[in-house]
Design a protein around this nucleic acid. Sequence first.
DNA 1: GTCTATAGCAGGATAGAC
DNA 2: GTCTATCCTGCTATAGAC
Lengths: 218, 218
Amino acid sequence: MAVEGTKASISRDRILYEAEALFAERGFYAVTVREITRAARCNLAAVNYYFGNKHNLYMEVFRSLWGPRAKRIFARFESQLSAGGEVTLKGIVRALAEAFIKGHLSDEERLRHSQLMIREMARPTEAFEMVIGEVIGPFQRRMVQLIRPFMPEEIGRVALLLNIQSIISMVIHFNFVRNPIMRITGMQYDDPFTDELVEHVVQFGLNGLNGAGQGGGR
Amino acid sequence: MAVEGTKASISRDRILYEAEALFAERGFYAVTVREITRAARCNLAAVNYYFGNKHNLYMEVFRSLWGPRAKRIFARFESQLSAGGEVTLKGIVRALAEAFIKGHLSDEERLRHSQLMIREMARPTEAFEMVIGEVIGPFQRRMVQLIRPFMPEEIGRVALLLNIQSIISMVIHFNFVRNPIMRITGMQYDDPFTDELVEHVVQFGLNGLNGAGQGGGR
DNA sequence: GTCTATAGCAGGATAGAC
DNA sequence: GTCTATCCTGCTATAGAC
């Protein structure tokens, strides 16, 4: 609303930014207003001044940071999709994997984004309606539209959705469950490894999709 | 240690049971000792009497409920695996999917089990060492041992682990992220639907695995 | 082993100076 | 818009009666 970057909004922005990081990392209840204001290098009273209370701050994180970022990721997915000329199943899966695992965000920001989303999926709050209504729902519908032409005619609606969810489960998993993944594989989440992750998701997901509706081989 | 079911241990057991349900559903910080003791129909002081403090109670949930249950699930997986005679790749994936999605636990208990595990994976506490050292690690090694023979000779260690993790990502996803799944598919987690989930995971996972190391089709 | 009562403290929220 | 000081609730943990 207000002009970005004015003196008036600097503290407010820092609070939002730090609050998102902390909520993503540890969840609403584990984070205190004192921590947030300390991280944002401002006063304890600032959260109440700008957002009324802690809960409103949480909601505002979704409205003004998470939501717009999700839209940027979606836009990126679409532009990569149409950049490759003809749309193939492989191109769709690759665009999805890259949007979630690599994308144009910093590694830290992408992790934060996934964590907030998964927290809402696992334990919905008021933000869930926004997350599913404005982001997950539309994305899901778009994926159905994209993938349907590559699936057998007779595939059911639910079966199609489960296929899409399975691809999504991988990208979520590899983003969110980093600790055990690093521990088990011994890898760090650096560029070569995330490249390998994308390649893996594309290959595994494509083969999974290609087998849809045929009862599975071997 | 003490004889199960004696008067002496009834309150303690109820606290453990209710604490696990609450911690799984909402996480350590969102749950209060008051809630736990209210749910267990005993006094506020009981948590400190039996467990010293709230944190020890959390750890005890993992030691005496979660850990043993994980071992039962593992045993179930093994027995189903050997029950089918010859071990096939499909048999392995099916045993895994059934152990996590159906299994012999009640639906509520399985959900609880997954939720606690994922909380630790996403945000490790002291319980993480136990979870990964005694459960996830051994299971992962067993899966490597089982699946390796079906993979191309030249497949790398990390590639193999990513394939295994991808199967696991699906069963975790379909267990944990129920809210959006139900919302999106319009399905309830009843028997027919979990059957469909198992079939889907088996088929999608099998196709994903069968394509491993070949660079993806189409 | 279970209870009541309460200490002690950390948290969210507010009042009011600057 | 930002700060300090403070209120008050609700929490964990403990003391001590039964």
